[in-house]
Amino acid sequence: MGLKNVRARLLPGVLATLLFLMPRLALASGGAPADTTAWWVWVLGLFVFTFLLGIVAVIAGVGGGVLYVPIVSSFFPFHIDFVRGTGLFVALAGALSAGSPLLRKGLANLKLALSMSLIGSMSSIAGALVGLALPEKTIQMALGLTILGITVIMFLAKNSAYPQIGQPDALSKVLQIYGIYYDEHLKKDVDWQIHRTPVGLVLFTLIGFMAGMFGLGAGWANVPVFNLVLGAPLRVSVATSVFVLSINDTAAAWVYLHKGAVLPLIAVPSVAGMMLGTKIGAKLLTKVHTNVVRRVVITLLAVAGLRALLKGFGI
């Protein structure tokens, strides 16, 4: 027990120190000179790295996109423009792969997703345009602050499996947002409805903007808003988040494609590594201590956020 506690506290600390120091040895992105390492070393390294990231992401219960951008932009020599463009495709590919069974089981709700994504996709296009127009240092600073904010949300958010809401709001009734699903844990059908729909629309506008601006998948924000603000059950929130993400990220991805910020040389190994890692991670899910992994991921995110922030200040 004692040894387990020590390991759980020590591991994130050791990894955090390594992450903080190692990019100083490797090439940092943005303005770094062209290096002499063969291209295939970086590409192979990227595949292995995203494969590991995929395993860790699924065990920690986060989307790969949110880990990909801050960590890859710290470790690899690619400009953050290309990392953000690829980050959207990493998140999009994961969402597309996960989507079909979630819809068939009735866990994801298309009406809830469509209601939120219509405005979210427009704001993600705006976010991507702004993100690609801003100076690099400003982006690094804003990314650092956002990642640190996500770390706090992940650390503090206590999702509610079955939120109790009073009355559904008028807008959600007009939009026919309610549903029923079979809960494998409770072994019974669960009816659900939502409230505070207008607040949700405002929040999804902001989330879409940030997802587009930083190339992050936005599951870290979609799920708490669906669950804690709108009052959807956790399973419905997680599943529906996948569809909002696939629509918003598609919209923003086109901006990056048109601005030439997607390179197949970087994007394909990232997408393939992350998808393969996610599949392995899902199989390992029952065999590893998820709390330790989650703590490691939160620590990695905090350090990556801090590094981005320091880079933004030119430190």
């Binding site: 590919a93 597309l96 792969s97 989507g99 079909s100 069974p101 819809l103 068939r104 089981k105 009735g106 994801a108 298309l110 549903g179 029923i180 699903y181 079979y182 494998e184 072994k187 019974k188 059908d189 394909v268 997408v271 393939a272 998808m275």
Partner: peptide
């Protein structure tokens, strides 16, 4: 209770095209 699927027709239709299109997409990308 036995598991009951509550997905609407539109969700089944969306899932069908999504599964096929994604499989094709992964093959094309590789």
């Amino acid at each position: 209770k036995q598991e009951t699927v509550h997905a609407e027709k539109v969700q089944i239709a969306y899932a069908g095209i999504l599964a096929k299109a994604t499989t094709l997409g992964i093959a094309l990308v590789v």
